[in-house]
Design a protein around this nucleic acid. Structure first.
Length: 310
RNA sequence: GGUGCCAUAGCUCAGUUGGUAGAGCAACGGACUGAAAAUCCGUGUGUCCCUGGUUCAAUUCCAGGUGGCACCA
């Protein structure tokens, strides 16, 4: 029997959660969340995790399963999801994955190169050097060490430069030597369902959802994790803006407006990424019936002609 | 009803001694293989309220209209 992973994706606030629960109920299966922030157990309101009723209806994985205090990345997500899928496919022919974290979805579909573990001190040292010497100096260094990567790197993006250098200083080998540019092949079929709607309506939904989060107690939730605000996991829309408010840098109203704006911008970046992916089957919101019959039809085809990504 | 002021980008406004215009915010486009809700790069998107008049040329000057605000009745 061919196994199929159905991926529900789309911009933030579009309604992926509701759709994925309907699909999982229809297909009698479970849901893997592909969301880089819903994965943190300390976050709840600001990340819009499914509510307890929804979690009760369908079993979810990678929702509030990790701590903000533990470093996490896309590569770990690939490994953990593949393990989870392995065991889920023992019981189910189809599994739903739902989320908006573009890289996390990509990593499950196409894999990510194996890189060595970087020792945290190297990163801290390089961050200090960036602060003291500036990006230009590190960039020149990278040009000497790894001209191949320098050629294609985003040279104004300090994270990219730093990453390449920290790999070199941790291992003595060039970052470019680890980049295979090879997509891993999965032993299951992938079916991508994209959800989208008019931009104006999407913005309306996002703004409304932020107001609801505030009503539901986002400010209190953010205050609880405020002591750890320097953690990467809390460099997150909905929290970082409130931290600025707690620090008396902006008013509460301004923070709320910024959460809305940054959510809108995040949605745009998601769409930029997803629009490149020709394999996505796009639907508008409120097309649940259409989507279900599309999936049913496609699953039938897959059992006849397996091993194709659609 | 009268008088005065205002009308320019999605919003708040600047400006053109007459040669079709620019700031902030918002917005839009793009990149992205271990921090990805992160990080980075790029882009003015305009019937200058409407209709006439003067002028080679009007968003700008003049008249009328419409809408808004203020004050006086």
């Amino acid at each position: 029997m061919t196994k199929t992973l159905i991926i529900v994706l789309g911009p933030t606030g579009i309604g992926k959660t509701n759709l994925s629960i309907s699909l999982a109920t229809h297909l009698k299966t479970e849901i893997i969340s592909a969301d880089s922030r819903q994965i943190y157990q300390e976050l709840h309101i600001g990340t819009a995790v499914p509510d307890s009723q929804q979690l009760h209806t369908v079993k979810h994985h990678f929702i509030q399963s990790h701590s903000i205090h533990n470093y996490y990345n896309a590569s770990q997500f690939e490994i953990e999801v593949l393990q989870k899928l392995n065991s889920l496919f023992e019981n189910y022919d189809t599994v739903i994955m739902s989320g908006g974290s573009m890289l996390y979805i990509d990593v499950v579909c196409n894999g990510i190169d194996d890189l060595p573990q970087i020792d945290p001190d190297t990163r801290i040292q390089l961050e200090n050097r960036l602060k003291n010497e500036g990006l230009e100096s590190l960039r020149t260094e990278l040009q000497k060490i790894d001209p191949e990567y320098y050629q294609l790197a985003d040279l104004k993006n300090h994270k990219r430069i730093l990453h390449a250098l920290e790999i070199y200083y941790s291992t003595g080998k060039k970052y470019s030597s680890y980049r295979t540019n090879v997509k891993k092949v999965r032993d299951f079929t992938i079916l991508k369902i994209g959800l989208n709607t008019d931009r104006a309506l999407l913005h309306e939904r996002i703004n409304l959802r932020v107001d609801q989060m505030i009503q539901n107690g986002l400010i209190e939730e953010a205050r609880k994790v405020y002591p750890y605000k320097q953690l990467n996991s809390l460099n997150t829309v909905g929290y970082k803006e409130l931290f600025s408010y707690f620090d008396h840098e902006i008013t509460q109203e301004a923070a709320i407006e910024l959460i809305k704006r940054n959510s809108r911008r995040y949605a745009r970046r998601q769409l930029t990424w997803f629009n490149k992916d020709q394999a996505i089957n796009w639907f508008n919101i409120n097309q649940e019936e259409t989507i279900i019959s599309f999936i049913d039809d496609t699953l039938k085809e897959i059992t006849i002609q397996p091993q194709q990504n659609r």
